[in-house]
Design a protein around this nucleic acid. Structure first.
Lengths: 172, 172
DNA sequence: GATATTAGATATAGCGGATAACAATTATTA
DNA sequence: TAATAATTGTTATCCGCTATATCTAATATC
């Protein structure tokens, strides 16, 4: 089921977007963004796309998407949880989480174990391989991805940005 | 730019996400996000979803999505441009821009005019109705949407956030 | 014990994004 | 100028993410 195709395609998809501000054909002058540059949501979305792009590039050797990485992280920090709990925490709907888990499980990164207490639910566990991949992914993310963000923004701004985004994600 | 260091359909779809940090069932304690809270991309995406959600709420009377609003804004500021130019500027692929324009044109918000210079291209123009809707939308966005963002973040932080996001969207 | 609720799963629909290919038109160049 | 290449808008199509309804097994409630 070629998980590879997914992640690599996502990286490739960046090119279409990258062409934007460059005035591709060189024909006329660049367009006026106007109040668009003052729209927070606009910059927010474009920045998010760029950041995800970079994440995919940095973690490409491990073929992990941001969503997959977040699942592995969560499983590591929260052992003994079931699908519903993990999915809810990440804002993923349960039906959509099934295929996602199938993909991770087929790569032997995690496993579903029927709970003895409640035989309806699946306790999710990281496999040894999952833990190993997660460890490598964490290093790539920290040393390549986040490092580049900190480099571009400066450490203080990076921290301030993180704080403000968290505030928006929560209290908004 | 000096970020103050102290800064230490679609509407309905918000519910699934909103349930997340609330520990919905009240069953167990909340899950540990771990290094997820330090992942810029994670907060970036969640914040973006919230902000778009709010945008849709605020502009709901006019039935405009963020993307549609950005098109109208761009047409207003850049008269005489064709589909390719507008689409490129917004990072929309030309094939996908066709249906978007069809929707706007069917609502009489803009129109395609065959160019006399180059009879392949369509010059895009705002209709009177499009200008009127855009004017109303701008007010809603400024007075409800952005106003709320500024209220939550504080004016200085709001400006700093905008600057950092623009930097990420460009120089990253 | 009957009924309601919950967990995981399936099916399905929709949207945004991406590529290939085509017709009409314009540009290039041989 | 004739032949070829490139460009514009378009269609068709695919993929991934998101959302809803529904099913089953299992559990909880009454």
């Amino acid at each position: 089921m070629t998980v590879s195709k997914t992640a690599s395609d996502a990286v490739r998809s960046s090119r279409a977007l990258r062409k934007e501000p460059v005035d591709p054909a060189g024909d006329d002058s660049m367009l006026q963004l106007g109040e668009l540059s003052g729209l927070l949501g606009y910059s927010l979305k474009r920045a998010q796309l760029r950041v995800f792009e970079d994440f995919l590039r940095c973690v490409a050797p491990l073929q992990l998407t941001p969503a997959q990485f977040s699942v592995l992280l969560l499983l590591d920090k929260n052992p003994g949880r079931n699908q519903t709990e993990i999915a809810n925490t990440l804002g993923i709907l349960r039906p959509n989480f099934v295929a996602m888990l199938d993909a991770l499980e087929s790569r032997d990164l995690c496993a579903r174990m029927r709970s003895t207490n409640d035989r309806r639910s699946h306790i999710l566990v990281l496999t040894d391989r999952g833990r190993a991949v997660l460890a490598r992914a964490k290093k790539l993310v920290a040393n390549k991805h986040e490092a580049r963000l900190i480099e571009v923004l400066g450490p203080a701004n990076h921290a301030a940005l993180l704080e403000m985004l968290a505030k928006l994600a929560q209290e908004f």
